[in-house]
Nucleic acid binder design. Structure first.
Length: 573
RNA sequence: CGGGGCGUAGCGCAGUCUGGUAGCGUACUUGUCUGGGGGACAAGGGGUCGCAGGUUCAAAUCCUGCCGUUCCGACCA
């Protein structure tokens, strides 16, 4: 491609709403342009990148035995009524009507449609297993679209759905998909990690997420250096160490005039924050109407894990209590509340780490006062429920007993689920087994955020000059920057010849034949993240030399004009 | 949905408090000089100041309503 024939529209300044570096660079390099909130135009340069990602995903899916199809983006309401998800999915689903006022949604996912295909098309065990996938535009009306294509409302996703006669067969395909995903992210040149995950709204049992590692990632991950244990923090199990020691202190009131946070109380008393206990007031639904007031106890330096709490009996549906509710149940303002001496109607649940603490400090339920030397059994009853409801922290023991956990952040780019019979049961996707008996299919589902990958890759690869794309997804592999293309016949001839040679060798090459100054060409090719650059100028040509530089290298090297084609091909392998 | 910010040229912003000729940088066009990291000079083009009402002789500016957008708390590839 010649730059003069292409569409390059770079900007020096990023739009004010671009917060993440990847978002800023994607707009500045002219990969994407915003149309509306969470809606982006993929410009020719950006589309080249997106297509390269797509091609790798498609190739590995095909290799793993999945079959590509394409389902409609728009789906009828009736199908979603069958699984009950028309109501469950909520405002995240974009609902639309046709001219007959029939209701549809713009598909946020395709379980219903694919299961409909399966129940219509699959009759016999002889047809199974099957794994269908598509690369399709989805729409989710996100509460807060942000970060450019990383959390857009409309996005490109690869989604696959497999059908099986047995759980063992499902596991087999699940493992194959796990391998395929590893292959995909490896080929894309990304630093990534597979972690155990919560299956969320999609449902199902076994669930693994694939994360591109980046400090700006929205998910916290816990992993073990000594083993292959890795999990989303939402799910990562906290291991309790030791047993409760017998208390030796007596319970005392301590004045804490201004100290409400555990950290400040600990500082005032000159003790470690890990000796404090905080109480979080919640209202949990009991039955349809009633709500129960709860205190959840956590060690002062720990944080509540809402996903874990949801799984505790009785906390299926909870919310944080308001200040008024706290005052009316405890007769005390927030900041000084605690589990000692509370009324019977206040139920106390303790994180398992708290349950083994003794001689701890907690709120007194009196303004400006805390209690020290507090012990379960003596100063307050044993907690009603003990459960793992906190986030793991750096240095916690790994649940597999192999060392300790470290934390990092990641961008979720893939998620694979074992759905089981959730959708096939609801929609009666059945087949006849060897005995002629009707059976419900087992299902798996496997997603990759194709457009998100582009943002994630840039989040991982950038410097002060712009994007550093891995070769696998760069819009062009090589850029030729001729100095004085329109002034020097020698330069023009050398550049044109090299351009043709590389093209014939099948290299994705961009020839910057614009009448731009060198500085502009360098700045723009760096911004766009093109991995290899060749500079041709009269100065070097006098000695039959051209300049070669990789995007992430600081210094260029001279290569003879005769060798440059081969040199590039070697670099690209 | 709750709370804050912002809507002025493609992009980044000033001007609004204190009403009176719509501005700056960048990008764009033309010319000259330049020519190895977004070059210099000169001359240009581009705006119903988010929309609709209202106050006023006069509104980007003040008032009301709406819309969009964005940031902070509950979703997810």
């Amino acid at each position: 491609m010649r730059s003069s024939q292409f569409f390059i529209s770079t900007q020096k300044e990023a739009p004010a709403d671009a917060e993440l570096i990847s978002h800023q660079l994607m707009v500045r390099a002219g990969l994407i342009k915003k149309l509306g909130s969470g809606l982006y135009n993929w410009m020719p340069l950006g589309l080249r990148v997106l297509r390269k990602v797509e091609a790798i995903v498609r190739d590995e899916m095909n290799k793993a035995g999945a079959l590509e199809l394409l389902m409609p983006a728009v789906q009828p309401r009736e199908l979603w009524e069958e699984t009950g998800r028309w109501a469950v999915f909520g405002p995240q689903m974009l609902k639309i009507q046709d001219r007959h006022e029939r209701e549809f949604c713009f598909g946020p996912t395709h379980e219903e449609v694919i299961t409909d295909i399966a129940r219509k098309e699959i009759n016999s065990y002889k047809q199974l297993p099957l794994n269908f996938y598509q690369i399709q535009t989805k729409f989710r009306d996100e509460i807060r679209p942000r970060f450019g294509v990383m959390r857009a409302r409309e996005f490109l996703m690869k989604d696959a759905y497999s059908f099986h006669t047995s759980h063992a067969c499902l596991e087999n395909t699940f493992n194959r998909m796990h391998q395929a995903y590893s292959n995909i992210f490896t080929r894309l040149g990304l630093k990534f990690r597979a972690v155990k995950a919560d299956s969320g709204a999609i449902g199902g049992d076994g669930s693994q997420e694939f994360h591109v590692l980046a400090d700006s990632g929205e998910d916290g991950l816990a992993y073990c250096e000594c083993s292959d244990y890795a999990a989303n923090v939402e799910l990562a199990e906290a291991v309790v160490v030791g047993q409760r020691m017998t208390g030796v202190e007596t319970m005392q009131i301590v004045d804490t005039p201004k100290q409400t946070a555990c950290e400040d109380v600990a500082k005032l008393l000159g003790i470690g924050i890990e000796r404090t206990v905080k109480a979080i007031a919640l209202m949990a639904k009991e039955g349809i109407e009633n709500e129960q007031f709860y205190l959840v106890l956590l060690r002062g330096d720990h944080q509540l894990n809402e996903v874990k709490l949801t799984k505790v009996e009785g906390f299926h549906d909870f919310r944080f209590a308001t200040e008024e509710e706290i005052r009316s149940h405890l007769n005390c303002p927030p900041g000084f509340i605690g589990p000692v001496g509370v009324l019977d109607q206040v139920k106390v649940i303790a994180d398992q780490t708290v349950a083994v603490m003794s001689d701890f400090v907690c709120g007194s339920n009196q303004p400006k006062r805390h209690l020290s030397g507090v012990n379960f059994g003596r100063d307050l009853p044993e907690p009603l429920v003990v459960a793992d409801v906190r986030n793991v922290v750096d240095g916690d023991l790994s649940p597999d007993g192999q060392g300790v956990l470290s934390l990092c952040r990641g961008i979720e780019v893939g998620h694979i689920f074992q759905l089981g019979a959730k959708y096939s049961q609801a929609m009666q996707a059945t087949y006849l087994d060897e005995g002629g008996k009707s059976q419900v299919m087992e299902m798996g589902c496997y997603g990759i955020g194709v457009s998100r990958i582009v943002g994630a890759a840039i989040e991982q690869g950038n410097d002060e000059n712009g994007i550093i794309f891995p070769l696998s997804m760069a819009p062009f592999a090589v850029v030729i920057c001729p100095i004085g293309y329109h002034k020097s016949d020698a330069v023009k001839q050398a550049a044109d010849t090299l351009y043709q040679a590389l093209q014939q060798a099948g290299v994705d090459v961009l020839l910057d034949d614009r009448a731009e100054r060198p500085g502009v060409m360098f700045a723009e090719s760096d911004l766009m993240g093109i991995p290899h650059r060749i500079v041709i100028g009269d100065r070097g040509l006098a000695d039959d030399q051209v300049e070669y530089k990789q995007r992430q290298q600081a210094e260029a090297q001279n290569v003879s004009l005769a060798d440059i084609t081969q040199h590039i091909l070697t670099q690209l392998n």
